[in-house]
């Protein structure tokens, strides 16, 4: 009986250990990237354009933007698209996500980002962080999955609000009433982004 218990503990233990290893690895990955981004945000002697370029090169390797685009659109709407349309959609969506991310960083003043812990959820790892502002503590969760040998982010959840889920719901609504071409047009022009096209004129979405 005792040996059995021991065996179970050992087997479970090694299982946990390998998870723990991966958790530590992902936590470290998130922490180092976030620290580098915050470092850039705090450095004074760098132009914004230059800074943003550097930030994109830091975050690009750990975000799976293409997957985010796919699951934001959803399988059902993805299928009927031609290869060409898929590529266009991913390109446009990725630009928009990046632009949105950089736009959010403009709100940064001198807040601290605390990387709290990594949690395993269904073979995936969620990294919990807090943005500590003057009057609040905002929770941001980076969700990682294992892509080959690398861990990559497929969703970011800010105060419980999932970026992918929110886009998905908007896409669904738009595609219910209009065509894919219209969706692409809205991705190009709606909101307040300059990277996709410079057509943007009005701040409010109709």
């Amino acid at each position: 009986m005792r040996t059995l218990t021991l065996a179970v503990i050992l087997i479970l233990g090694t299982g946990f250990l390998s998870y723990a290893d991966e958790k530590a690895e992902v936590l470290q990955l998130a922490k180092s990237r976030i620290d580098r981004v915050v470092g850039l945000l705090r450095s004074k002697g760098i132009s914004k354009v230059e800074r943003n370029k550097k930030i994109i090169t830091i975050i690009n390797p750990i975000f799976d933007f293409a997957l985010m685009a796919k699951i934001s659109l959803g399988r059902k709407h993805w299928r009927p698209l031609s290869a060409q349309e898929r590529k266009e959609f991913i390109d446009l969506f990725v630009l928009r996500l990046q632009e949105s991310y950089l736009d959010k960083l403009d709100l940064y003043t001198d807040e601290e980002v605390v990387v709290e812990e990594a949690v395993t959820v269904k073979k995936r790892i969620h990294v919990l962080t807090h943005l500590v502002t003057k009057d609040d503590k905002l929770e941001m969760v980076y969700k990682f999955y294992k892509s080959g040998n690398n861990w990559k982010i497929y969703d970011v959840v800010i105060l419980g609000v999932s970026v992918v889920q929110t886009y998905r719901s908007q896409f669904r609504g738009i595609l219910k009433n209009t065509s894919f071409a219209d969706l692409m047009e809205q991705l190009r022009t709606k909101g307040g982004f300059t990277i996709p096209t410079k057509k943007f004129k009005k701040a409010s979405a109709s």
């Binding site: 709100l107 419980g160 609000v161 982004f193 409010s204 979405a205």
Partner: peptide
């Protein structure tokens, strides 16, 4: 304003933000 810039369609966007946050 910053949040709003993310919206393709403001109403469902704000609705989802509210409901998910709650």
């Amino acid at each position: 304003e910053n949040l709003k810039r993310d919206a393709l369609d403001l109403y469902p966007f704000l609705r989802d933000v509210y409901e998910q946050n709650r």
